[in-house]
């Protein structure tokens, strides 16, 4: 029998969004201010001294990368906190004893975190318009790509939150792995600008494909073909879903 408890999903979803609502200033204002600073420093100050890349002014060129940078880290942070906090405070007892399936749990927690990431991404997108002229070649694809990114990275964050046994473990992956990979993944430059062998090495960084794909939705072109980007994001999505499936089937770090 297929059963899906909308009441339970909406209870968790609303609870999580209310939690974000309480920290609205830090969770939305901080990334917006940070991104604005990037625009001022890289876009306006340095960007005015830079050549166009592929016919795109530098200020506009960095927008997709900046949105991705914020969405990656915020998705991971929010989704991992959402499930780590109940583990930390012990309130997870209620979730585990509730008539809620793994699917419902993931849909609710990841859905709430992804919603927040989408709001954040769109706010940064809107903020960018204050600084640069920003054409969007494929608006529907842009929204779709953002949603895929938000869901995938929130799933990854969820995994991290279940895995983590301390606040340090919770932060180590986003800070030490994801942020550097994003900086090196072409957020601020086209990988075509890199000399060999760095250019080839960079192709092993999955983030390159994500940023390139997102940039394609804006400008109709990226560092790699859009099919490659979609392939990477689909693969990451499938891997995350598989890991979560395994975690729930074994009770990994959730149940004794």
């Amino acid at each position: 029998m297929i059963h899906f408890s909308l009441n339970a999903v909406s209870a968790i979803y609303t609870f999580e969004l209310a939690r974000f609502g309480r920290t609205i200033l830090t969770s939305l204002a901080t990334p917006v201010i940070t991104t604005s600073l990037y625009f001022i420093v890289f876009g306006s100050a340095i960007g005015s001294q830079m050549k166009e890349i592929d016919g795109i002014p530098y200020g506009a060129f960095i927008v997709p990368g900046l949105i991705m940078l914020s969405m990656f880290t915020e998705s991971i942070f929010n989704a991992s906190f959402g499930i780590y906090m109940p583990k930390f405070t012990g309130t997870i007892y209620e979730l585990l004893s509730a008539p809620v399936s793994a699917l419902e749990t993931v849909v609710a927690y990841v859905g709430a975190a992804a919603t927040k990431s989408m709001i954040l991404g769109l706010i940064i997108f809107a903020t960018a318009h204050l600084f640069v002229a920003l054409p969007v070649a494929h608006p529907v694809a842009m929204i779709g790509f953002m949603m895929l990114i938000a869901i995938t990275f929130c799933l990854f964050g969820f995994i991290l939150g279940v895995w983590a046994q301390s606040f340090e473990q919770l932060q180590v992956i986003p800070l030490l792995v994801v942020t550097p990979m994003t900086f090196l993944g072409g957020a601020f430059y086209s990988i075509a600008m890199l000399p060999e062998p760095w250019r080839t090495i960079t192709l092993f960084n999955p983030v390159v494909y994500l940023i390139s794909g997102f940039r394609w939705t804006f400008f109709g072109k990226g560092d790699v073909a859009i099919e490659w980007s979609l392939g990477f994001i689909a693969a990451m999505l499938v891997i995350c879903i598989a890991i979560i499936g395994w975690m729930f089937s074994t009770g990994y770090r959730l149940k004794k």
Binding site: S5, N7, A8, A11, T14, A18
Partner: peptide, 14 residues
């Protein structure tokens, strides 16, 4: 109030 309301929803009740 909201935490008790949450629990009811979590257990699938309207």
């Amino acid at each position: 109030m909201s935490t008790v309301r949450f629990s009811r929803g979590l257990f699938g009740k309207p």
